[in-house]
Design a protein around this nucleic acid. Structure first.
Lengths: 112, 112
DNA sequence: TTTATATACCTAAATTTGTTATGTATATAA
DNA sequence: TTATATACATAACAAATTTAGGTATATAAA
């Protein structure tokens, strides 16, 4: 569905950032939000998303609670305190990597 | 050595771009150049680099020739015509992805 | 009513792409 | 003679995906 090799490694960061901005979201909602905001160019597959959410929870960065809406169960995620710190860390890592990559690929207008 | 999950997917693009700018480079030279330009923050491991070079050659994007310098063999790579087109394609993909990622992560100063 | 689409979760097999570890070999400085 | 730099390479392992499949409800269309 996606076939975007560049996505690799940034999925956790995307999830954490969305939960920093929204306080609570469920899995399906995350896929839809990413699709919207990226205008369809970044599509999260469920096979990647759910394991990533479970791992972030196992690592103590997310906590969950369920809610039933229209007879369907939604599993909501929210950041823990540790998760809040992790967002900051991941974002600065991402920014640093993007900067270096843009330099290497000459995708920056000016070096200074 | 590296442990940078964000690198995944961008290695081929980095190699192709360097060869667009330099016309010919050998493997070891590529690792050193990347380390220099990124100020040590992006380190290409040999276990990733050489297989990537071999794959790009097998795909017809690179061609090779050897040269002996100080009794040591250097294997130089250069872009083929197909490789030249591939660089352009990979660079615009990378730029688009970086743009979307920065939007998602709110790492952009202004949306417009 | 049955089919398709959207919503909503999940897991398992296979694949891609990297790291880590190891091997070979020469040049050079300590 | 030892360590470090240069220069290539492959193999075992690990991580993070894709692809494919499964379950279930709601709703609109045929």
């Amino acid at each position: 569905m996606n076939a975007n090799p560049l996505l690799k490694g940034s999925l956790q960061t995307i999830i954490l950032k969305l939960l920093e901005d929204n306080s609570q979201m469920y899995g399906y909602e995350i896929t839809q939000r990413v699709k919207e905001v990226s205008e369809g160019s970044i599509v999260l597959t469920e096979g990647a998303l759910y394991p990533a959410l479970h791992k972030l929870e196992a690592d103590g960065f997310l906590e969950t609670f369920t809610q039933v809406v229209d007879n369907r169960v939604r599993k909501y995620y929210r950041l823990t305190d540790a998760g809040g710190k992790e967002v900051t860390s991941k974002l600065s890592e991402a920014q640093a990597f993007i900067d270096q990559l843009q330099t290497l690929l000459n995708l920056k207008p000016a070096t200074k």
